[in-house]
Design a protein around this nucleic acid. Structure first.
Lengths: 195, 195
DNA sequence: ACAAAAGATTAACTCGGTCAATCTTTTGCC
DNA sequence: GGCAAAAGATTGACCGAGTTAATCTTTTGT
C-alpha cells in the first residue's frame, strides 16, 4: 500500500522530466536527443518512453495535467457555461496561474518560451487544446452550438494567454499587466454568444 | 522556356502523390512506408523528400495549396471582412467545394476520411489552419480584436466543414445536405462579432 | 557540340519510437 | 518469515522518417 515501487517510479519520472527540461533550456529542444536525457537520468531509452510517450511530453506533461479543465469547470458550475469559464479565467489571472500567461517568474517564462518557440512543442500543445475542445463540446451538448462555442472558448483562452505571455516575456511585470489582461479577457468573453 | 525539365518535375510530383494516396487508401497511412512510395514512383527516398518535405505532405499538398485563402479573401474584399468570409463560404457550398465538406464524390470522401481518421494527417492539417489563422489575423490588423476574430473564423470554418463531411460521409447526398449546411453556416457566421 | 548548372542517385547516417526477451521486485499465500 | 507467481522494469536489437555529402546524369544556353 505504501508503495515503495510507486516512490521509485515517481523519482524516475521526476528525474527524467527535470533532466529533460534543464537540457532543453540549456541547448534547445532539437539539440538534445532522448538518448542524452535517458543517460542523464540513468535509465535506458525504452524506459524513458514508458514514462513519457513522446519526447514532447517530457516538457508538456505539466500542462497536460490540466486536461479537460474547461469541461470540468462547465460540468461543476451552477451558472451558465460561458459565465463559469469567464470567471474561471479571471480567477486564474488573479492567482497568476501560468496557464493564463500572467506569470513573470523567470523559470515559468523560460518554460513557456521553450514551448512557444519550438514548433514540435507548439504543435503538441495544440493537440492537447484540441482534446480540451472536444471534451468541452461534449460537456456543452454535442450539437452545432456546443461545438462552435467550445471551439471559440478554446480560441479565446489561447489568444488571451499567448498575448499575456508575450507582454510579460517582453519584460513587463505581471502586476503591471494585470489590469489590461482583465480588460482583454472581459472583452473577449463578452464577444461570445450567451455571455 | 518550354520546360521539358519542368514537365518531368511535374510528372514526378504527380506520380509520387498519386502512388502515395493510392497506397494509403488501400493499406492505411501508417502501413505504408515512404520507401514503398518512392519505389512505386521509381525514385529514391531523398528525391521524394525533395518534392514533399514530409510524408504527410504527400497527402495534404492539395489542401495546402489553398493556404492563406481567408486572408486573401479579406484583402480582396470590398465589404466588411466577416461578411466577405461568410459569402465566400456560402459560395463554396454552392460550388460543392470539397473544403466545405459538402462533396459526395467517392474519391473526395475517401480522401477526407483518410485525412480525418489518421492522427498524423489531422495534426498536420491543423498546422496549416494555424498558418491560415495567423495570416488572417495579420490581414485584420494585429490587434486583439483581429486575433480573436481570426481564431474564431477559422474555428467556424473547421467545425462547419467537419460536420458537413461527417453527414455526407455517413451516406447523405450532398444535395440533400445543402440546405442544412447553409442554415448552419449562416447561424455560425451570425454568431461572430461585426457580422 | 559543349560547358555549366540543375537535379537525381546512392550510401551512410541520425534520431524518435517500438518490440521481444530477460531480469528484478512486489505481493499474495502458506 | 519464506516462496511462487505475477507485475513491472531493463536491455539490446530493430524500424521508419528524414538528412547529408559525394557522385553521376541530364538539361540548357551558347
Amino acid at each position: 500500500m505504501t508503495g515503495l515501487r510507486e516512490r521509485k517510479k515517481q523519482q524516475t519520472h521526476d528525474a527524467l522530466s527535470e533532466a529533460a527540461i534543464a537540457l532543453f533550456l540549456a541547448r534547445g529542444f532539437d539539440e538534445v536527443s532522448v538518448t542524452d536525457i535517458a543517460e542523464a537520468a540513468n535509465v535506458s531509452k525504452p524506459t524513458l518512453f514508458k514514462y513519457f510517450p513522446t519526447k514532447q511530453d517530457l516538457v508538456l506533461h505539466r500542462i497536460a495535467d490540466h486536461r479537460h479543465e474547461s469541461a470540468r469547470v462547465v460540468a461543476a458550475a451552477a451558472v451558465p457555461p460561458v459565465r463559469a469559464l469567464r470567471e474561471h479565467f479571471l480567477a486564474g489571472l488573479v492567482a497568476r496561474d501560468p496557464i493564463t500567461g500572467l506569470n513573470d517568474h523567470p523559470q515559468v517564462l523560460a518554460y513557456y518560451r521553450l514551448v512557444f518557440t519550438t514548433p514540435a512543442l507548439a504543435t503538441r500543445l495544440h493537440q492537447f487544446m484540441d482534446d480540451d475542445e472536444r471534451a468541452l463540446a461534449a460537456a456543452l451538448g454535442g450539437d452545432l452550438a456546443g461545438e462552435l462555442l467550445a471551439a471559440q472558448v478554446v480560441s479565446v483562452q489561447r489568444v488571451l494567454s499567448r498575448r499575456n505571455w508575450a507582454v510579460v516575456d517582453a519584460g513587463q511585470p505581471a502586476d503591471d499587466r494585470y489590469l489590461d489582461a482583465v480588460t482583454e479577457a472581459e472583452t473577449a468573453f463578452d464577444g461570445l454568444p450567451l455571455g
